[in-house]
Design a protein around this nucleic acid. Structure first.
Length: 416
DNA sequence: TCTGGGGTCCTAGGACCC
DNA sequence: TCTGGGGTCCTAGGACCC
């Protein structure tokens, strides 16, 4: 292998990366849906948020308009807190199905520019434009995408332009909305090191106070630290934050869609449950949801996990590795019940219940049991299959078990 | 009327084996 | 009676992301 001697033209070796971030995604998309449905008020132009349901104890801000943002409303805070800052705040419900559609519309446009697209979340994409510039510049492509999305889809995006994913993501987070920002290596000192350290990707609420205590206030302060010292102090995370603060990120745009590594559903209960029998009903509902999704991926689980959150917001979880992988409702429910038994003390008020399956494997990786499947197992598989087909045809909530009717009065399920 | 839901990855301790 | 490490697997909990 020869070194790429291209006459000193190092440009060729650099990746050309864009990060696309939909501005106020849930709020913008709901605004568009409302306008299309004949409403005249564009909720992007008022003090508005997309929020959960306070009567179901899920009253938090999911997205905010620019006007609400200017009043200090932040994503993730309670609607109660948001209203204290913004008394005229209007709260609207979200519609996941619609968001998925708008996200797909965006993706289709982006596919015209490169097929190397990583869908980082419902409203964010990384584009690897290396070799896809067709003689144009990266920044011109960024502006073109921005203009086209606005014109053709009716919402705005921020575009970050850089030579790696981290810098592109940091760039798209600069001033909003409807902006294109570059963050090239030579711009790091002026555009990134001046920012508060809390702005750095992967630095959250637990790490920030520790950094502040060390006198690290800006991303630049972090970048100046000794690398080995950061590793010693924070382990792998220390290395990551040191590299990020210096703009170092060699990760690739992961454009091949990966199978999930785990699948989970959880629900905040409208009122606390304080007995095992009640919790078991909720767990059955969640297991059915989780295993249905699992089977739709044609995957099998090796680990079952049950999570509980007390009324005091303390989280507990227990998990168990299975003796063989399964996608069977009954197997997973039985394991989940065992886990609940181990961890739950009768009378403790529970606010949230969650069920997850992990260590998923593809169908063809499943070890066939040495003795073959028992009649009981075959019967259970058939039952799951019939139920799945009905759900696919008539909707997730079309069919239900007698034993869990009560819990469905309490928790309303989304169509999966 | 106070705090969602869906993920991924990491760490630390204990069990167990060589 | 006392005394090893190294490696892997499993589990509970936590940090972070959108």
């Amino acid at each position: 292998m020869f070194y790429n001697d291209d006459g000193g033209n190092m440009e060729k070796k650099q990746k050309q990366i864009l990060h696309i971030d939909v501005n106020n995604a849930f709020l913008s998309w709901t605004a568009i849906d409302r306008l299309e449905a004949g409403e005249t008020l564009d909720i992007r132009n008022i003090e508005a948020v997309i929020g959960g349901d306070e009567s179901k104890r899920s009253g938090i801000v999911l997205a905010k308009s620019m006007k609400a943002k200017m009043k200090g409303v932040t994503t993730g805070e309670t609607l109660y807190q948001a209203r204290l800052k913004c008394p005229n705040l209007q709260v609207f419900k979200g519609e996941y199905k619609s968001y998925k559609k708008h996200s797909n519309d965006l993706y289709k446009i982006l596919l015209e520019y490169t097929d190397k697209i990583e869908r980082f979340s419902i409203d964010e994409c990384f584009l690897d434009m290396t070799g896809y510039l067709q003689g144009d510049t990266l920044i011109n492509k960024a502006y073109e995408i921005s203009r086209r999305v606005k014109k053709e889809l009716g919402f705005t995006v921020n575009v970050g332009v850089a030579h790696n994913k981290l810098l592109a993501k940091m760039a798209s987070d600069f001033s909003k909305p409807d902006k294109v920002h570059t963050l090239y290596e030579e711009e790091i000192p002026t555009k990134m090191w001046t920012l508060p350290v809390s702005e750095l990707f992967m630095l959250g609420r637990k790490t920030i106070p520790k950094l502040h205590a060390m006198g690290i206030k800006t991303i630049g302060d972090l970048a100046k630290q000794d690398k080995q010292y950061m590793i010693k102090k924070f382990g792998k995370h220390g290395l990551l934050m040191w590299e990020y603060s210096n703009g170092i990120d060699n990760s690739e745009v992961n454009y091949i869609e990966e199978k999930p590594k785990g699948i989970g559903n959880s629900v905040t209960l409208p009122t606390d449950i304080r007995n095992k029998a009640g919790l078991e009903k909720v767990i059955l509902t969640l297991v059915e949801q989780v295993t249905y999704r699992l089977r739709r991926y044609n995957m099998y689980a090796n680990v079952v996990n049950v999570q509980l959150r007390t009324s005091e917001f303390k989280d507990f979880s227990h998990q168990r590795k299975l003796s063989s992988s399964t996608a069977n409702t009954k197997d997973i429910y039985n394991t989940a019940k065992e886990l609940l038994n181990e961890m739950y003390k009768e009378g403790t008020p529970i606010r949230l219940v969650g069920v997850r399956v992990d260590n998923l494997v593809e169908e063809n990786e499943v070890q066939i049991s040495l003795f073959g499947n028992t009649e009981e197992e075959k019967k259970q598989e058939k039952l799951d299959n019939v139920v799945d087909k009905l759900k696919q045809k008539y909707g997730y909530n079309s069919i239900t078990r007698a034993g869990k009717l009560h819990s469905e009065d309490v928790i309303k399920l989304k169509d999966v």
